[in-house]
Write a protein that binds this DNA or RNA. Sequence first.
DNA 1: ACTTTTTGCTAAAAACGTCAAGCGCGCTAA
DNA 2: TTAGCGCGCTTGACGTTTTTAGCAAAAAGT
Lengths: 126, 126
Amino acid sequence: MSDEIDVGRKGEALGIYLKSLRSGTGLTLREVEDATGKDVSNAYLSQLENGHIAKPSPNVLHSLASVYKVPYAKLMERAGYISPNARSSNAAKHGRAATFSIENLTLDEEKELLQYLSFVRQKAKS
Amino acid sequence: MSDEIDVGRKGEALGIYLKSLRSGTGLTLREVEDATGKDVSNAYLSQLENGHIAKPSPNVLHSLASVYKVPYAKLMERAGYISPNARSSNAAKHGRAATFSIENLTLDEEKELLQYLSFVRQKAKS
DNA sequence: ACTTTTTGCTAAAAACGTCAAGCGCGCTAA
DNA sequence: TTAGCGCGCTTGACGTTTTTAGCAAAAAGT
């Protein structure tokens, strides 16, 4: 269909956002690579910023989010992992069986989880 | 498009749990396959995690339980083999600060939370 | 000027997760 | 029994992500 070198399109929004974040800090690609502890290579980050990757893995997004100091969920949203107004058709609650594997949480994990939950629910309101 | 996730239905709870367990260890599908001694193929594990398998065989669950170092009965329970209340005291498995107020989660919220937890845990490694 | 280093970037290969197709085994019905 | 269906499970792909190795141009020394 149509042409060929139609860059990203999907990852374009994410890419531009990432690029703006980086230039906001003045860091180079390799400096960001180091800042993530080699979690994200400079080459890969370049592909990311230019929209060549549609859906980077959440791990990558998490690393970048902490480097740029933006909420992880924001990057997740731009990458299309969570729909901005994902009020699930499935409004049914099943409160009782929520005794999930959310035992064995560290304090930090619990904190981050609740933070993330509030984000999700805030989204759902809209 | 359409990252709609209404798959499985039955194996959904088990699948998400398995997925969170795996990314908790940072292993890949093929690495888990090797870890089980080729007991569980990577493709099958993928189907498992995505809820495409209603009732995996107990020996598969047993292999995975030993790889992930979780009680075998727990996986059996999630797979629907044994009733949830047929377990010993729920007092404290690991004594962590685990109080989590997730009484009224929707199914989708619960799913997203567990996924997010996976990422957090994988990130926290090393 | 001429090196040397650093920057952003890219092509190719590797690794990843998942899908499609099929095999095998237990079931159920006649 | 035998024929068929259903479903767990494997194998072999396919498309995407991520790594590796390096490129040309700009920057910085000398």
